[in-house]
Design a protein around this nucleic acid. Structure first.
Length: 311
DNA sequence: CACCACGGCCTGATCCTTGC
DNA sequence: GCAAGGATCAGGCCGTGGTG
């Protein structure tokens, strides 16, 4: 009953302002409301972890939210007219990792994916092939290989004019550590059953997935994608690519034409070494790119070439 | 009552990122 | 570079609720 979270709630209620873990704890000590069973060397870290986990796991169900990094407040303050407006905007903590491997991931028969190896088809063609087939199902990624299924990824490329955004994949951001530390032009998302929303423009929720990934990885607001028609990620092609273990995955490539104001910054981004790359003029160090990006850069270059022949 | 499984909770370490 | 923030993990404790 007197867990860290209970104490945080009591203290925050009493102080009516956002507080850090350290000051919550200090206030609890002052008010002498810390039960004897709560002890430790770095209690502020423990409290911080409890609050972080609660917000992370329960999301909108959590009674807590962040006003800025390390500052926590109670959701009940949001409906309080006397609570200062400057503390009413929720600060979304940056995720350290994305949970790419959800239990309800979409899976496709590897035999079906294999028919797309070394080629690429349009989304409509892909939909046609799926029509009336039972190649699609839902399962945990761990099961896929042994049951003869492949994962389905969205691979979102950020484009500006004839350039695409390249960056170095950090070690932490992807559990497919084979791609870690390589350069990439794509932001990966694993398609899951619940990506399909009422407002989905395609039956698999591909665009919803891409929007979620881009807003998370590029630190954009989802609203960025809501209004102008031209700022929605467009499905480019569907193909199949092998990971470094040789297992085939289905890859849906999307292109997002970034708005004028968009400029990748490393400051609030966990993008390492970002830069714009012209696929028509591929760099010498293509080996530095992870294999999927290398393939897709070539594909984009071939597709764009006719535009530049006159030069 | 003794025993056990289970889940919730807590500690402390670790890893990565960011701000100063 | 260093301190602090954010996230995750293993390990352990403890109350609860069966079950024989």
């Amino acid at each position: 009953m007197d867990s860290y979270l209970d104490i945080a709630r009591t203290v925050l209620r009493a102080h009516r302002r956002p507080m850090g873990a350290r000051s919550i704890l200090a206030a609890a000590y002052k008010a002498n409301i810390l039960p004897a069973h709560i002890y430790g060397k770095t209690q502020q870290k423990t409290l911080q972890a409890r609050l972080s986990e609660d917000i992370l796991h329960d999301r909108e169900a959590s009674i807590f939210y962040r006003t800025e990094p390390g500052q926590f407040a109670l959701k009940e303050f949001l409906s309080d007219p006397d609570f200062p407006a400057k503390w009413k905007t929720e600060f979304p903590a940056r995720r350290r990792t994305r949970d790419l491997k959800r239990p309800d991931s979409l899976a496709i028969r590897t035999t079906m994916a294999a028919s797309l190896e070394n080629t690429a088809i349009s989304m409509s063609e892909f939909s046609e092939r799926l029509e009336g087939s039972d190649a699609l199902t839902v399962m945990h990624p761990k099961e896929m290989a042994k049951r003869g299924y492949s994962a389905i990824w969205t691979f979102s490329v950020v484009r500006r004019d004839d350039q695409v955004l390249a960056y170095r994949i950090g070690r932490y951001r992807d559990d497919r550590d084979t791609f870690a530390n390589r350069r990439s032009i794509g932001f990966l998302g694993a398609l899951a059953a619940d990506d399909v929303s009422l407002f989905s423009t395609d039956s698999l929720g591909v665009q919803d997935c891409a929007v979620a990934v881009l807003s998370q990885d590029l630190d954009l607001s989802v609203a960025t994608f809501e209004h102008p028609e031209e700022q929605v990620p467009k499905i480019e092609c569907v193909t199949a690519l092998a990971d470094l273990q040789g297992h085939l995955d289905l890859v849906i490539v999307l292109l997002w034409d970034s708005p004028e104001w968009f400029e990748p910054t490393t400051r609030r981004l966990s993008l390492n070494d970002p830069g714009w790359l012209r696929p028509s003029m591929p760099p010498n160090d293509m080996d530095d790119f992870e294999p999927w990006s290398a393939r897709i850069i070539k594909w984009l270059a071939a597709k764009d070439r006719p535009k530049f022949v006159h030069g």
